[in-house]
Design a protein around this nucleic acid. Structure first.
Lengths: 358, 358
DNA sequence: ATGCACAATAAAAACGTTTATATTTTCTAT
DNA sequence: ATAGAAAATATAAACGTTTTTATTGTGCAT
C-alpha cells in the first residue's frame, strides 16, 4: 500500500550474472576491475551494468567488507537557545571536507555533540561500532580524551586543532600562537599597553596557544602583559558584549581588543557602541576572520584571515590518506592566518581617551 | 600490520546464541522485544547482551531490512570562495534536526550540493539507491524538480520551504509573505514610500512570497509599490553591499530597506556606512534575524525573528513520521516570525534626506 | 597421447541480521 | 491418557556483496 517500496527492483549483481551468463563471482570481480577476468567478459559485464543502470548496493558491500564509506564529523554545538551564531563556521568546514571527499565514494555523516564528554562518548561509539571509516573532530582540549582514546586504536581520525600532549596523530591546525602574537604586537606597536584578550575557555588547547602568543608579544618588548584583561568564555556574541562592558567598567580599562572569532567580535563592537566608543577613534580591535565578514563591519576591522574551507579540505584529504592506511606522522599541517590590515592600529597613537593620554 | 582492525571481535547475535544456548532467531526476536519469546529467555538474552556489551551491527541490519537509519540532508552551498558566510544558518538547522532524531536511532548524513540541479541529481541518487531512509532539503524553487520527482515515489522527504505547485508533501516553512508584508507595512507607516526589497533569486519560491507581501503592503494602502527598488541575487554580504550602493546611486533612491537575511543585511549596513548614511537617522532597515545577531548590530535593528533551530526540529519530527509511514497531508507547518521592534521605524518621519523631505 | 601449467570461470562460504516456516514443547479440554 | 491448540523455540533462507576455494578449459612441452 503506502509503504516505502521502490517502484522497480534495483538490479543486483545477480541480475548482471543472469544477463551475461557469467557467475556472480565473475561479475563481482569484473566490476572491481580484477585482472583475472578476461577483457571480453569484463566489457560484456560493464555493458550490461550500463544498460540496466546497475549501482552497487552499499549495504551489501558494507556488510561484506566492513567498510561504511562514511566519514563521521563531530559538530560541537552548545544548543544554548538564543545563541544561534554558534558553530556557524562549521558549514564551511563541512563544505571543505565534502570537496575533499568528492569522487572518493565517501560521504559525510554529521553528529551534533554538546560538549567534550558527549564528544568522547560519540567518538568511542563511532570507532567501536564501526559506524564510520574515519572521524574528524575539533574543539580540541589541552588534554583531549578523544585523541587519547583513538590514538591507541588504529581507527583513522583527523583533528582540527592540536592537543598539548606528545601524541602522534593526524591534524590540521591554525597557528594560534603566531596569530595572537601578531595581533598583540601590532597593537603594542600602535601604542597600546592595556590590551584585552577575548579568549575561549582555557581547557581548549588553542586558548592556551593564544595566551602564549599574547604574552610573548609583551615580554619580547620588555613589557608586562595585561593578563588581567584576559577574559574567557563561550564564543557567543553575548559573551563578547558582556565581557566588553565588564572590562570597560574597570578602573584601568583596555584600549584595544584581540578577539577570537567574529561572533565575539560583533559582541565586542556592540559593547563598545553601548559605551559610546568608536573603533579606530577610541579603541582598536583586531579579530579572527573565519567567515569573511569583518570586512563589512563598520568600520572594517584589521583581521587575521583564516581560509577555513581550505582547512576543511585538508581535513578531508588527510582522513582519506589515513583510511587508505597511511600513518599519521606526515599528516600534520599548520596554517598561518593572513593579517589583513584595515585600520591604522599599528600607528603610534597620539591620544587615547581610555589610557588617559599616556 | 597497521591496517584498521578492531582489537577485539565484536560480539554478534551468534555470540549471544552460544552464550545462552538459544538459536540466533530467538536471540534476534528477543532483542527486538518480540512478544513471542518467553519473558525468562528474553531476560537471559538481555543479560548476556549486557554482559558482553552487544550492539547490533548496523550493516547487517541495513542489508537485511533495507533500512539505513540515515537521514540525508542536502546543504546548498555555492562554494564561491570568499563568500564564507554562505549557509551559516545550516548549522542551526542541523542542530534542530539532530535534536529531533535523538533517541530514534537515526543519524544525519550531510550532502553538500552546489545548485538546484546538483541537488536534484543528489536527491534522485539518495532515493534511488536507498542511501538514506528519508531526505530533508531546502532552497525550494517555485517549481522544484526535487519535489516533483520525489512526490511521485513513496520516498519520505520533508522540505524547508514550499513550492508553488499544488502537490501534497510534508514541509515546514516560514510565512514569508506575512513577514515581508509586516516589514513593509511598518516602514510605510513610518512614512517611507521608496522602500527597497533585497530579495533572493526569483526562481526561489520564497522570493516570490516576499515580493507578494511587499506588494500587498503598498496596494492595501492605495500606494504604488516601489518595484523598481527590488533587487535579487545570491544572499552574500557582497550582494547586499553592492546592491545597496547601486540603489543609493539612483536618482530616486530608497529611504528604507527590507532585507532577506543577516548576511545581506550586514552588506546593506556596510553599503550605507560607505555613503555616510546612518541607520535610524537617515535610513531604516528591517531584516530577517535567523542567527540571532541583529540585536548586536549598531544600532540594533528591528527584525523578524525566526526560531530556526525550532524549524530544524520540526523538520526532523516530520521526517520521522513520514518514515514511520504517516502520509504527508498533516505534516505541514508554517512559522510566523516574531517582529521585534528595536528602532522607531514605524513612526512618521519628520524629515528624510533621501526623500527630499516629502 | 599425456601430463602440466595457467588462464578463466564457477561454486560456495561468509559478513550479521531478520523473518517465514518448521519443529518441538507445554497447556487445555476432552 | 490424548488430541489438538497454543506457546516457545529452531531451522533455514534471504538481503547483496566479496573472497576463498574448486572446477573447467586451453595451449604447450614432452
Amino acid at each position: 500500500m503506502g509503504k516505502p517500496t521502490r517502484r522497480v527492483e534495483m538490479p543486483t549483481i545477480k541480475t548482471l550474472a543472469e544477463m551475461t551468463g557469467f557467475s556472480i563471482a565473475t561479475v563481482s570481480k569484473a566490476l572491481r576491475d580484477s585482472p583475472v577476468v578476461a577483457p571480453a567478459t569484463r566489457d560484456a559485464i560493464f555493458d550490461a551494468a550500463e544498460k540496466v543502470g546497475y549501482r552497487a548496493n552499499q549495504r551489501g558491500q558494507a556488510l561484506r567488507t566492513g567498510k561504511t564509506y562514511q566519514v563521521a564529523v563531530l559538530m560541537p554545538l552548545t544548543g544554548a537557545s538564543g545563541y544561534e551564531w554558534d558553530g556557524v563556521e562549521y558549514t564551511q568546514i563541512l563544505s571543505g571536507i565534502s570537496q575533499a571527499l568528492d569522487g572518493s565514494g565517501y560521504r559525510i555523516s554529521a553528529h551534533i555533540v554538546t560538549d567534550a564528554e558527549d564528544g568522547a562518548a560519540m567518538a568511542r561509539q563511532i570507532a567501536g561500532l564501526g559506524m564510520a571509516d574515519g572521524l574528524i573532530f575539533s574543539g580540541i582540549l589541552a588534554d583531549d580524551p578523544r585523541i587519547n582514546l583513538l590514538a591507541e586504536t588504529a581507527f583513522p581520525f583527523v583533528t582540527l586543532g592540536r592537543c598539548r600532549r606528545d601524541i602522534d596523530y593526524a591534524h590540521v591546525d591554525v597557528d594560534n600562537e603566531w596569530a595572537a602574537h601578531a595581533a598583540t604586537a601590532r597593537l603594542i606597536e600602535g601604542g597600546h599597553r592595556r590590551i584585552a584578550l577575548v579568549n575561549p575557555h582555557r581547557r581548549l588547547s588553542y586558548s592556551l596557544d593564544r595566551l602564549d602568543g599574547f604574552t610573548r608579544a609583551f615580554v619580547e618588548r620588555g613589557l608586562a602583559p595585561s593578563l588581567d584583561l584576559v577574559v574567557e568564555g563561550d564564543l557567543s556574541t553575548r559573551f563578547g558584549k558582556d565581557s566588553t562592558e565588564a572590562l570597560l567598567a574597570r578602573p584601568d580599562p583596555p584600549s584595544a581588543f584581540v578577539c577570537v572569532n567574529e561572533s565575539t567580535t560583533l559582541g565586542v563592537l556592540s559593547g563598545l557602541a553601548a559605551r559610546g566608543l568608536a573603533v579606530a577613534r577610541d579603541v582598536d580591535v583586531i579579530a579572527y576572520d573565519d567567515i569573511n565578514v569583518s570586512a563589512y563591519f563598520t568600520p572594517p576591522l584589521t583581521t587575521l584571515y583564516l581560509p577555513i574551507e581550505q582547512l576543511g579540505r585538508m581535513l578531508g584529504q588527510f582522513l582519506l590518506r589515513r583510511i587508505a592506511g597511511e600513518g599519521p606522522s606526515r599528516l600534520r599541517q599548520t596554517f598561518q592566518p593572513a593579517l589583513i590590515p584595515r585600520q591604522a592600529d599599528n600607528c603610534r597613537m597620539t591620544s587615547n581617551p581610555m589610557t588617559g593620554g599616556e
